[in-house]
Design a protein around this nucleic acid. Structure first.
Lengths: 295, 295
DNA sequence: CTGTTAGCGCATTCAG
DNA sequence: CTGAATGCGCTAACAG
């Protein structure tokens, strides 16, 4: 006893049983000391922790997941990682989840419901404890699968009439309306739209168009750009300084970190209270129109 | 038999055994039909697939991982999701991995080796088949753990003298040198630096400074910005159009997707050939200095 | 507060 | 080409 001190890649990773032997307790006590310390004496706990360090034990989460049917995994589906608008949210979300002992499974759907469906199929095999989707547009198959498996789901960044489970977002129609109000209020009448080819962008566009029409203003034109797009604004004199300053002329501002935290809290609550009936939750996190000099 | 047709959340998810019963074969045959179809008759395979659809079976990957000690999981550690410079790489990487049946575990380290270490500890419990790290700066503990567990590791976006395992990146010293050459060649002599507070940025800076010094040029000053930084450039006339055009005055261009694919290929190769001794691999993917009118 | 028993769902041996 | 037995490493029940 006591020759397991080298850095050599051991053929077999230490298990709970190994730790238990070293600590002189039963395997289940090790399990408890690690996972639910409050069920164990301070003394035994420290002995266990010592043995853990001595052995270099790292719990096998796959085994734990199988035995407990809790994977401690949350799947997060994003259209793309490139759109910085999700960055703050994902950051806050993963941080909060990590603090609660959960890990993040990343899925990239490319704004495509079919790709989302395929990804979902694969990810469900992991039995995640929660799933975060972007938007409210999903294939029928995805909807059925999600309804059947009963895993807590958050649809983020949007609100719709029939939530899968929980929704945390804002109304893109309201954004279009607010932009119209703002611009018309500033006296603008010659308005044009450039948007990414994504469902939420298009809905903002349609809402804006309609709101303008109500006031007798017609859009001068529009451009739909394919997914990874770059937009540059150039001009002379005041236009350029206005457009390039920060923030630009007008921005729709969203509290990304708050959304991320809200998503995490919602999921963790559902996970903690699985008996809770799946009563739809819709949280409108709102947005803000930030114009030059309005802040 | 034949009342399992509803969408009701069944108390128990169907297992291999359920599928086997429906298909009239043994469980192991179902396993093979799904995982290694070439070992099974076309006829039995289709019967199994039919049964899979009928039952709505989704393989439990945790059980599979436990039994086979292959998790089909790759952990990807990023400093932040906000830096778009990683976006292309991660996109290509996850796509390639997904195509090979692997899923991506996301870790955000915030440019902090200690946070990376904590994350690593947690993630190792998942027994990932591969790990992708950003950069070459890691705590001693992280290095030891990684050496011991023997999981294929790729350090991306940088090169160093002592690779953990595989490295795919470029020399940030070379970048600094190239930038110096470029700017001096253009006749610039009054040069200043703004960089994020990140190890690689600082190394580019130091290399640039030194390269300039060799030519008798001294930096006019420098600014180190804390992690999430926004930089705006404003001016009058030509300066503004030059600075705001796309690409800006000078850019260091990296082929993100290629790096992502290269990482995936390297990992998959190692995973497929685990008997292969851990011979360090260093792949320099290079970079390009793209200046206005140079392209 | 601790231990015993049992089984999570699957894939890897081996046989046939 | 298919099947039977066995165990991966852990935790949920119960008992003491």
């Amino acid at each position: 006893m006591g020759r397991s001190n080298s850095l050599a890649r051991s053929a077999r990773a230490p298990t709970l049983v190994d730790v238990a032997k070293v600590a002189g307790v039963s395997p289940i006590t090790v399990s408890r000391a690690l996972g639910r310390p409050e069920l164990v004496t301070a003394v035994t706990r420290r002995r266990v922790l010592e043995a853990v360090r001595a052995t270099g034990y790292v719990p096998n989460l796959a085994a734990g997941a199988l035995a407990s049917s809790r994977s401690r995994l949350v799947a997060v589906f994003l259209p793309t990682i490139a759109n910085s608008i999700f960055a703050d949210t994902v950051q806050a979300l993963t941080e909060r989840l990590a603090a609660a002992g959960y890990q993040t499974l990343l899925g990239l759907t490319g704004y495509c419901p079919e790709q989302e469906e395929a990804l979902l199929e694969a990810v469900l095999g992991r039995r995640p404890d929660g799933i975060v989707l972007t938007g409210t547009e999903h294939t029928q198959t995805s909807r059925e699968r999600l309804a059947r498996v009963g895993i807590p789901v958050v649809e983020a960044w949007d609100l719709s009439a029939k939530p899968l489970d929980m929704q945390i977002g804002f109304s893109h129609e309201a954004v279009g309306q607010a932009v119209a109000d703002y611009l018309l209020g500033k006296g603008y009448r010659r308005i044009s739209v450039v948007t990414l080819d994504d469902p939420r962008g298009l809905r903002r566009y349609r809402s804006l168009e309609q709101a303008l029409a109500t006031q007798g203003v017609e859009l001068l034109g529009m451009q739909i750009l394919p997914a990874p797009a770059t937009l540059a604004v150039m001009g002379f004199g005041d236009l350029s300084s206005a457009a390039h300053s920060h923030p630009p002329l007008t921005t729709i501002s969203i509290d990304g970190p708050r959304i991320g935290t809200a998503i995490a809290e919602a999921l963790l609550a559902r996970i903690a209270e699985p008996t809770l009936a799946r009563q739809p939750l819709r949280l409108d996190v709102g947005f803000e129109v930030v114009g030059r000099g309005s802040g």
